[in-house]
Amino acid sequence: MIEFITGDLFQLIWNGLFVGSFYALVALGYSMVYGIIKLLNFAHGDIYMLGSFIAFVLLGSVIGFLGTASLPILLLVLLITMILTGGIGVLIERVAYRPLRNSPRLAVLITAVGVSFTLEYGVRQIFGPAPEVFPFRLSGESVEVLGGRVSVPQIVLMVIAALLMWVLQLYVMRSKEGRAMRAIALDPRATLLMGVNVNRVISRTFFIGSALAGAAGVMAGAYYGSIDFLMGFTIGLKAFTAAVIGGIGNLYGAMLGGLVLGLLESFGTFVLGGEWRDVFTFACLILFLSIRPTGILGARIAERM
């Protein structure tokens, strides 16, 4: 028992926080988009998948030229991928969601399912159904901390994730544009009357959310080493669960929800076994929706559109 407290407990917490930071990055985009246009962007998880495939292609070319890759190159690829996935997010919004701005919500949700399908099976057409091996794998030693193993790649990725989230937080909470985003989430009509170009702000929100999801995809590829066209499906659901747990539409809620979900999963699989992990996650979702649908930190969305 004592060993559990010192050894396993810390490991469980660390693993949970690590996976949780991926969830948080993807949940942020999900939550921001839902807050601003009340759309559950079903295709958001597939942006994460696109990020990993784009990085796969970029890294493959770089290694083709230079013969090798390293952490700085990965970071550069990360940046480029973020910009590209951000752009794809903006494109999707323009093409598939904006024409339906005034349609009933059911219609946009269905369209999002269509977009998700298109992305998944489009990638499948190009790359095939079998998983691809990521050309660059983060490697490093592990350190013993409090009875658990902590690896350098894990630390690196968590630092990157934390950095991204910190910058995002500054932008949304302090800047004029961030304020406009929050205003649209609360009352789109009134925000129009403040002189805000709502279309542009919505595009920007999609850019940021998609860039973060793409970043998470790159990091997942670099850490886990294997990517496939359906990897976005599950992560999309987990991201939504995380956003709900933390409080939908709430920036800090998405971050907290991601970490909390990671921890819950970590402990849940420890008790129930790995094959029940996703079932446990959805049970948490249903539990939260039943007991506290506004999430831990409370939701931040307009009551009426």
Partner: peptide
């Protein structure tokens, strides 16, 4: 709750049954 949530929850339910 909001009907948007039903979509994701039902999706999760589908996965739960399958798993």
């Amino acid at each position: 709750l909001r009907s948007d949530y039903l979509a994701i929850v039902t999706l999760g339910f589908g996965e739960i049954i399958r798993i």
